[in-house]
């Protein structure tokens, strides 16, 4: 799922100040992806409000009023419609959604200042409780079937299609000892399956046009349209 992490409260406060006298603030969490990664669920909404209150009182600002809400998903307009009264009456909305949710909210309520409370980081699973890694870059052209289920785009620091490079050592990437070398995993995975021939032939340069390098991506399914 989408992973994100909380921005430092100081950055959020800076944005609040730039917006003006925000005395009435909505803090909106998101009940799906960012809840699961402990960045934007109901608990984090509560926590951020506390932090803003403490920061305000530390610098002697008068208390603001807060509306806390955590819709199931901010990325679907239907889920944020019920927030209309709160949002339109607010001086600012701090959105603890991923960048997708923040934008849907901002687009739905164009006259309200929407402040992102999170940095959206990547798509990936938890390794264990409290630790996550990226494993999909959304490149639009999946090759996992050829690479033992390990993505060379997301899991190689150089997104090589013909790896591993000379920096692979003991299964780790030269960029950091805590990063697995994706290509070492590909080689071992394919060799376990007897499929090393999948990568024995030099691949030509990847077609990046389905990835984000082709401008904003869109999908349509005519048959689904209502």
């Amino acid at each position: 799922m989408i992973k994100a992490e909380r921005k430092p409260v100081s950055e959020i406060m800076k944005m609040l100040s730039a917006t003006g006298d925000c005395n009435n603030v909505v803090v909106a969490g998101c009940g799906t992806c960012v809840t699961i990664c402990f960045a934007g669920g109901e608990q984090e909404v509560e926590s951020l409000v506390q932090e803003v209150k403490i920061a305000d009182s530390t610098c002697g600002r008068d208390p603001r009023t807060y509306t806390e809400t955590t819709p199931q998903r901010q990325c679907e307009v239907e889920f944020i419609e019920p927030l209309e009264d709160a949002v339109t009456g607010a001086d600012a909305v701090i959105s603890l959604a991923c960048g997708v949710g923040v934008q849907v909210l901002a687009e739905r309520y164009p006259d309200t200042q929407v402040i992102p409370g999170l940095n959206t980081t990547f798509m990936g699973p938890p390794v264990k409780q409290g630790e996550w890694y990226e494993n999909c870059a959304g490149c639009g052209d999946c090759v996992l079937g050829w690479t033992a289920g390990v993505c060379p785009v997301a899991r190689c620091a150089k997104s090589m299609m013909n790896g591993p490079c000379g920096g692979s050592q003991d299964g780790k990437c030269e960029v950091g000892k805590d990063i697995d070398c994706g290509w070492a995993l590909i080689v071992s995975g394919l060799s376990r399956k007897g499929q090393l021939d999948f990568i024995a032939k030099a691949a030509k340069a990847k077609d990046w046009s389905p990835s984000s390098h082709g401008g904003q991506r869109k999908m349509t399914r005519e048959d689904l349209m209502i």
Binding site: A157, K158, M161, E174, V175, K204, A205
Partner: peptide, 28 residues
């Protein structure tokens, strides 16, 4: 060459390209 990762150098905040790698470069 594929090239050393930018995180080792003096502009670690730069965006890399890696449109290709050494082998696809050779082919090209």
């Amino acid at each position: 060459l594929t090239g050393d990762h930018q995180s080792f150098g003096n502009h670690p905040k730069s965006k890399n390209v890696f449109d290709m790698d050494s082998i696809s470069l050779l082919k090209m």
